[in-house]
Write a protein that binds this DNA or RNA. Structure first.
Length: 103
DNA sequence: ATAAGGGCACCGC
DNA sequence: CGCGGTGCCCTTA
């Protein structure tokens, strides 16, 4: 799936996230095989995400928190709730069950 | 529980 | 072509 830049790879992985499931920035970075703090670059990639078809809202923090969102955290939570996720105080309740791994 | 530091890819100057 | 600023973060003290 590696075809273009790091950003495009991130977008490709995000598109592969099933509806109603979520993943973490760190997991994406780990899947890309990079070392170190790649999750930062991942954050930048999703922040500047030009493709509206990419469900970047399904990417959350590794600690189960929602994290941030370019259009606002509230919008992100709203989207996640729309997909059947249970969120309590910016924290995903059933994070373990809804977590999606690329492996 | 809160605070601070750390190291990666992209873009503009 | 090189350097610094930027960012939906993570880990440790």
């Amino acid at each position: 799936m590696k075809k273009g830049t790091f950003f495009e790879d991130v977008y490709s992985l995000c598109k592969k996230i099933p509806k109603g499931r979520v993943t973490t920035y760190k997991e994406i970075g780990r899947k890309l095989g990079r070392k170190g703090q790649v999750y930062r670059a991942v954050g930048v990639a999703l922040n500047r995400n030009p493709y509206k078809s990419v469900p970047c809202h399904r990417v959350v923090l590794s600690n189960g928190r929602v994290g941030g969102f370019a259009r606002g955290v509230a919008a992100k939570i709203k989207l996640l709730k729309s997909e059947g996720l249970l969120i309590r105080k910016d924290k995903i309740v059933d994070f373990d069950e809804k977590f999606f791994s690329f492996e």
